[in-house]
Amino acid sequence: MNVFRLVADLMHLASILILLLKIRKTRSAAGISFKSQLLYLIVFVTRYLDLFTHWVSLYNTAMKVFFIASSGYIVYQMQRRYRATWDPALDTFRIEFLLGGAAVMSLIFHTKFTFLELFWTYSIWLEAVAILPQLFQMSRTGEAETITAHYLFALGAYRGLYVVNWIYRYATEGYWEWIPFLAGMVQTVLYADFFYVYFSRVMRGKKFELP
């Protein structure tokens, strides 16, 4: 554990708490892409399949349980109590391509051809692009609530800081893996436009609006 990874995990934790707060406070999931939330649920379930077979630490297990449970809760609540508050007509990204593309990528690029390893790799590739339906929806509407922008910033910072963690680990431990590094870079590049607007507008107290 190093400071980059710790802050990354805390940002991830914060992002979900901010999202839950947004939904509760505004009593609405407006502006949130259901498809992205569904993809994150698939990401965490497929990545943490080793939850009961591979013990790392109490911290690791507690975080895994929280990420699976909270993403499941959000998907469930968006289909139930908050079903009428968001508009599926705005959430039109074709996630079949992301699900299929991540499957192809994990079949080509993986370290071992085993059940757990393939699902782990699938989750890594899928996570890289899981934000696309959300970004696509925002590019259509051209704006986002400030609290939603904070949620997305914390979520993007999580994977961005993991990339820094891997570079740091290579420098200090000689530890290196290409797959999570490349996937983290892809996600961070996809986020570039969002980060630019976030830093230039939201951090200065303005509304998140695309130019």
Partner: peptide, 10 residues
Amino acid sequence: AVKGGAHDEL
């Protein structure tokens, strides 16, 4: 899956 590797991260 290397012990202490990316599989042990989140």
